[in-house]
Amino acid sequence: MGRYILKRLLVAIPMVLGMTLLTFILMQITPGNFLDTIRMDPQVSEETIGHYQKMYQLDKPMFQQYIHWVYNLFHLEFGYSFYFNIPVAKVIAGRLFNTFVLSLASFLFTWMIAIPLGIWAALHRNRWIDRCIQFFSFICLSLPSFLLALVFLFLASQTNFLPLGGMHGPDFENMNFFVRSMDFLKHLIIPTLALSIGSIAALQKIMRGNMLDVLSQQYILAARAKGLPEDRVIYWHALRNAINPLVTLLGYEFSGLLSGAALIEIICSWPGLGSLMLTAVRSKDIYLVMANMLMGGVLFIIGNLLADVLLAKLDPRIRYDKKH
């Protein structure tokens, strides 16, 4: 197992670096950089601009800048943010938690609803309740999440029931812990719902399909022939097999954890990495953009690896194949 992981990592690292190189080149291709905005300010002297150039190494050739960046990576130095004037690591750390919470909430919500729903739909296949669920699922699948977010914000504005975006109420600092938590949760609801509904529809469909596949297998018939109670047949024998393929999905969910929420964050004014990325891209804050992309790529690799390892652990057949 260890060798397998190592091999995957060895292949993955150049891919991640390749991706960052691509990003770097893209950011460099665009005419103009951060300094242009400063140059336009007549009060800033040539000296200061020269000083900035040196500090950010903008006078060196492109390739050298990139090598320098990669070199710094190994020292866990992610560069400096031009726009915020503090190290990139600090900028990201500030927003990381917010995005993480939102993604985690949406992930948990999605899986806790979709899996039971899918199982239930499979068990009541083709009855009217199943048909209803499939119908709504299809609609929700086609609803873009940003549209959902807008509609929810609209409803919120009409009913004054939920806050309209942002992460804190205006009086946040003065609230005690309990009220603060409630306030935070209330702000979390709309973005989480907008993110989750499409995923729930998709996941439910997959779960239902897997469950139906498994239920038609011989070993389910054999389990019943052994005299096992129906509950055990379904929730132990069937479910255990139906859920295996979903584990790979888990890995992909993990990869999309930080970037999936980006658009919704921007719409709901949730101060996370998504809105950060938007600002960074707009102001051509190179190192911030690269760091974000790097994180995305790394999470993707880790997520995939996680999915593969989990699958191997759960399905003995795969373990066996890999050994040989």
Binding site: M15, M19, M27, G260, L263, L278, F300
Partner: peptide, 20 residues
């Protein structure tokens, strides 16, 4: 895989930023 690896929305933003 390398192209698909990049978070889609981020790539969209980054590419858009490359446009003058």
């Amino acid at each position: 895989e390398m192209v698909m690896m990049v978070p889609g929305f981020y790539l969209l933003l980054a590419l858009r930023a490359a446009v003058p």
